[in-house]
């Protein structure tokens, strides 16, 4: 077991103390812990983002393993529980809050009150729009990093990050939704997730 100091020193060695202080103070909420959210959570946990709020109502299913950061032993577990356990294995000193709920217009205000940056990582397009509209209307000062379009394989360069406003960004190719023979697959989904995580890192450090 590593001490808090050992882990922090290692992170500071990689990032510098100044950068690490900012990462440690950051508060990021990840709405959806599937292909996007689990990958974003891993990336942010690895660089030591100090406060992660993980939100998902669902359980790990065998069909998730083709792209989501879970293992066989997690099948049947709530994603919040599974992911929290995995992230704790990377850095047990991060503050990880979980909410095993479906996000609605009613619970949105309370759920996202504390985060400075919100990562939209749902798969349902109406849920994506509901979350985006809710955050943009209620919390215009917070940053929203959303995603749209990442199915299939190839065309890596079509995945992009687009600034919509100073506080609203969109990652993905904005058009490819899953279809027969062109479903969600680990490599391309990971590119989109990395866009989200990398932008979140940039927003924390700017």
């Amino acid at each position: 077991m590593l001490t808090r100091e050992e882990i922090n020193n290692a992170l500071e060695e990689r990032h510098t103390k100044e950068v690490q202080n900012r990462l440690t103070k950051a508060r990021v909420a990840i709405a959806g812990l599937g292909g996007l959210g689990s990958n974003v959570a891993f990336a942010l946990a690895r660089i030591g983002v100090g406060h992660l709020h993980l939100i998902d109502f669902d359980k790990v299913d065998i069909t998730n393993l083709n792209r989501q950061q879970y293992f066989m032993r997690h099948i049947g577990m709530y994603k919040t529980d599974a992911l929290r356990a995995e992230l704790t294995d990377i850095n047990p000193y991060l503050e990880i809050k979980t909410d095993c709920v479906k996000v609605t217009e009613e619970n949105l205000p309370a759920l996202f009150a504390q985060a400075g940056i919100i990562c939209e990582a749902f798969d349902d397009p109406e849920a994506k729009a509901m979350l985006a509209n809710g955050i943009l209307e209620l919390y215009p000062e917070k940053f929203l990093v959303a995603a749209s379009g990442m199915a299939g394989y190839g065309e890596s360069n079509a995945i992009h990050t687009r600034r919509i406003t100073e506080h609203f960004y969109l990652c993905g190719d904005e058009k490819t939704e899953p279809s027969c023979g062109n479903g969600l697959m680990a490599p391309r989904v990971a590119i989109c997730a990395a866009h989200e995580a990398n932008l979140i890192t940039e927003l924390i450090l700017k």
């Binding site: 959806g32 996007l36 798969d123 985006a132 749209s148 379009g149 990442m150 969109l170 490819t176 899953p178």
Partner: peptide, 10 residues
């Protein structure tokens, strides 16, 4: 007007 249109998948 800027219309952000979400597609499924995540």
């Amino acid at each position: 007007l800027e219309v952000v249109s979400f597609v499924g998948g995540g």
